[in-house]
């Protein structure tokens, strides 16, 4: 087992490095350092002066790890690979440097974004798991019943619906129309961040938190539940047609006991693996949800870094999210081996 884990980790390192190199070269070669001027707030005369002096001009960018980029930043035209090596050697020493555009410490931005995303993931996964298991078991136990058809249909809808659309509809209905329906002048559910800044005391703050979380968590949950409940349903069906379950039923064990004691436990194994795989992808995958609900998480951070063409900030982002994918992939494999004694990892 340990050898397996070590080998998997060792294997993922070159993959990560290659990914970072590709992203570095690509973003470096193609990003638009003046992207923020594409909209109306155009160049001031000062910015034009800076332009004319060449400070924004590609590929005039240098990796500055100590201080924010400013006018006085020297403009070296080092080869891309050299710059990449410069970045990598610092990164390996734990120095992520400062953002090109905002001048802030990349690690600080990552930390705060990660905290927000983690909250979404924890609540989203908890709720999704509960819902999917219930739906999956119900659908499998009552196969071809009306609820089964309804849930099957809903899961198709969930998988066929763009996340952003669901989010917008949720805001339209529950942030706006619900309030006017109830004739109140405040939103019942929020679509702005994770907290209000004025909630004081434990219970008001908890309620405030719940009202902020409800819609984004619902949005990210829909697709997850749609797919997880299908897994749970089919693995439940697989298990229930297995010989030992038939034997248990034939022995006269109560159906409830058979389902929950025997079938569900075994049917959870494949689901848990899939869950682990999916959760790994969520750390960098909540781009749309975070964007719509103005939550400053990893996805939103990615969008703004990308818009700014900020390689310095993008690369650590990429590494962090990729590490989570790799870790959770590994976790999925390990879980599989631990939960199912028939599988031996080698």
């Amino acid at each position: 087992m340990l050898t397996f884990i070590v080998r998997r980790i060792a294997y993922s390192i070159p993959v990560l490095l290659l990914a970072s190199l590709l992203v570095f070269v690509f973003v470096h070669a193609t990003s638009d350092p003046l992207a923020k001027y594409a909209q109306s707030r155009d160049l001031t005369l000062k910015a034009r002066q800076g332009l004319a002096q060449g400070i924004y001009q590609q590929p005039c960018r240098e990796f500055v790890t100590g201080s924010p980029p400013t006018k006085a930043m020297t403009c070296t035209k080092a080869p891309v690979l050299k710059q990449y090596w410069y970045w990598l050697s610092h990164f390996l020493k734990g120095k992520m440097g400062n953002s090109f555009v905002t001048g802030r410490a990349v690690s600080a931005d990552l930390r705060s974004s990660f905290g927000n995303t983690l909250q979404l993931i924890i609540w989203g996964v908890l709720i999704s798991a509960l819902l999917s298991i219930s739906i999956g078991v119900l659908s499998a136990v009552r196969q071809y019943s009306l609820p089964d058809y309804i849930f099957t249909g809903l899961s198709f809808v969930g998988l066929s619906m763009p996340t952003f659309w669901f989010g917008l509809i949720a805001i339209d209905l529950f942030s706006n129309r619900l309030s006017s329906l109830l004739h109140v002048h405040y939103p019942i559910f929020f679509s702005l961040g994770l907290h209000s800044s004025h909630a004081r005391g434990f219970f008001p703050a908890a309620l405030d938190y719940a009202r902020h979380l409800a819609l984004p968590v619902a949005t990210l949950t829909v697709q997850i539940v749609a797919s997880w409940s299908r897994y749970e349903r089919s693995s439940m069906l697989d298990v229930m047609s297995a010989d030992y379950i038939r034997t248990a039923t034939a022995k006269g064990l109560p159906r409830r006991k058979v389902i929950f004691r025997h079938a569900l436990r075994n049917a959870l194994i494949p689901l848990v693996t899939v869950m682990a795989l999916d959760i790994g992808g969520l750390f960098g995958g909540l781009v749309v949800t975070e964007q719509i609900f103005s939550i400053h998480g990893m996805g939103a951070l990615f969008l703004s870094d990308l818009g700014n063409g900020d390689t310095q900030a993008l690369l650590p982002w990429l590494m962090v999210t990729a590490v989570f994918v790799v870790l959770f992939n590994l976790l999925a494999d390990v879980l599989y081996g631990v939960l199912d004694p028939r599988i031996r990892l080698s």
Partner: peptide, 14 residues
């Protein structure tokens, strides 16, 4: 930063 989101937040009183 998203103008449309800002408008929604205004409309809903946030």
């Amino acid at each position: 930063t998203d103008t449309a989101a800002e408008q929604q937040d205004y409309k809903s009183g946030q």
